[in-house]
Design a protein around this nucleic acid. Structure first.
Lengths: 193, 193
DNA sequence: CCTACCGATCGGTAGG
DNA sequence: CCTACCGATCGGTAGG
């Protein structure tokens, strides 16, 4: 219901994401965060309930974006190889929109407490399984090699995707869209007959 | 100079590795570690100088193992594709020897303080550049596609390798050697003409 | 958004 | 390897 571009709560969360990315969640103190915002630590609690609430926001917002992206891809009536490729570029684009939050999503989710952690891991395994289903469909359709290890293939795919925020330089020559295509090409052609 | 299989210091480091893997370095307390060993926190300091010394041992010991593995591969007189493949299986084998330490190496090295952190990152960039050189030699020799993005290729490779300790189940049907071969095959064939 | 403050926990030391 | 303990810092609350 806030009409400004970025509510104060959102500003707090964005600054927290930067901090968590740099130092890790556990090593980041609320005093560090307050200092980045130019306020006192106690004042943070006018905007957020707890340190962990910030992490919850970051992790579940990213998860929702990834899910939406894959929803769109699954609707398409295209081959498995194309679906996999679109799934990959979609994932990369979601990450590119917020590399900081993506890095936190990937590296810090384990600091969620229950039941959030359980919920998060369920979302993630579900997402991975949807990619696995695409690969399996590709094998059945004869697009991918029959002898590939599905688990290995999908985990290799995810590893490549999820590490991207740690090394990709958004100011580099290659833009996220092109990066996604190249990555997809590299991985998909490694699977194709 | 300790003749037992595992010195007390090594026992402490191994238990610490398990703890750091589970909770992360920053969230692991020396009291947690002491409890795992059945002693008081203060007693840990008879064996180690500080919490960070444990992390230093874990990170630099792993780095030395990776370097040794790649040294051996570089000596071989084989094609770039074969070298890359051997480099990959070597890396996987080093990790498989201690998946716990590997996970800590990958996820917690950033908690090293200076000058250790700088030193660690130099070792790592050096290792990555040696793989990059293999890929570049492969491109020059016409074994790999000329249009591949070397940085993307090498970072994708590393991502896949480094995430393995997070999902690989050593009790599964596929053994580390076979895993390394399949991973190498998947990645190398994605690069080959 | 601030001042003032709390109880808990941290890594580590002294001295045995 | 233990008891006893230190100063620093933690996430968070009360009350304005």
């Amino acid at each position: 219901m806030e009409s400004s571009n970025l509510s104060r709560k959102e500003q707090v969360i964005r600054k927290a994401a930067e901090l968590f990315r740099e130092k890790g969640y556990a090593a980041s103190s609320m005093r560090d965060l307050a200092q980045k915002l130019g306020i006192e630590a106690a004042s943070l609690y006018s905007h957020i309930k707890s340190k962990e609430e910030i992490l919850q926001n970051l992790c579940f917002d990213m998860a929702a974006e990834f899910r939406k992206s894959l929803d769109e891809v699954e609707k398409l009536n295209i081959s498995a190889a194309e679906k996999l490729s679109k799934g990959i570029t979609g994932h990369i684009q979601v990450m590119a929109k917020d590399l900081t939050a993506s890095a936190v999503f990937m590296n810090e989710h384990r600091h969620l407490s229950q039941p959030w952690l359980r919920e998060f891991l369920l979302l993630r395994i579900n997402y991975i399984n949807r990619f696995k289903a695409i690969i399996e469909a590709g094998v059945r359709a004869g697009e991918f090699k029959a002898e590939i290890d599905r688990k290995l293939a999908v985990m290799t795919l995810f590893s490549s995707l999820n590490w991207m925020p740690l090394w990709y330089d958004p100011s580099s020559a290659i833009d996220p869209n092109e990066l996604g295509k190249q990555l997809a090409d590299m991985l998909v052609n490694g699977l194709k007959k």
